[in-house]
């Protein structure tokens, strides 16, 4: 329930909301800081859920539908939690010309998921990027935070296996 004029209650006791509050304060506490704040939420929690969107919207006095509209307009934001590992296949032009499509097909077949999805066991999320700016190393893949260049389907499969083994 919205109480008129008051600051909305924190969605939870989680300390990470302090970071979110700090960003909102720094951005002036108004709607202009919406995107900055969503960045902070996603960095802190990994994704944007309904509670977070509601809290941010009410704190910045932004209509709920506008917050949702912004969160779904930008591809960088995600409303669903990701897997333990993420694999980003770059589909920039240079990577495409050098066979990134094959890498994507390999991943889809191996994991049986589509880009943007996470394996049912929550282990791996498969993502695509429009361009990582590592075109000199095409085709490029990001394993978790690490960029790998000149990747081929074989090295892709072995990396997946490495993830699977380390976890077991």
């Amino acid at each position: 329930m919205v109480t008129y004029g008051s600051k909305p209650a924190l969605p939870s006791a989680d300390k990470r909301w302090k970071l979110v509050d700090a960003t909102m304060r720094k951005a002036g506490g108004n709607g202009r800081g919406l995107i900055e704040t969503l960045h902070t939420v996603q960095e802190a929690f990994g994704y944007l859920d309904e509670d977070a969107l509601r809290y941010v919207a009410l704190s910045l006095r932004v209509p709920l539908s506008r917050a949702y509209g912004v969160a779904t307009f930008y591809h960088f934001f995600t409303l669903k939690p990701g897997g333990r590992h993420t694999c980003v296949i770059c589909l920039g032009t240079a990577c495409y010309i050098k066979g990134a499509q094959h890498l994507l097909e390999t991943m889809q077949q191996t994991l049986s998921i589509a880009p943007g999805e996470t394996t049912p066991d929550g282990e791996v999320s498969l993502l695509t990027a429009r361009c990582l700016g590592s075109c000199g190393l095409a085709p490029a893949v990001v394993y978790d935070q690490e960029v790998a260049g000149k990747v081929d389907p074989a090295s892709l499969r072995s990396h997946l296996e490495k993830w699977a083994h380390h976890d077991s």
Binding site: P63, S65, R66, Y68, T72
Partner: peptide, 28 residues
């Protein structure tokens, strides 16, 4: 009231109420 807005983009855009919830449950 700004109940309505557009979500998504391109050919997948659609109008929504509040947090993309059923219109009947909209708070605004």
């Amino acid at each position: 009231a700004h109940t309505w807005d557009v979500m998504g983009r391109g050919i997948d855009s659609k109008v929504i109420t509040d947090l993309n919830q059923p219109w009947g449950s909209s708070e605004s």
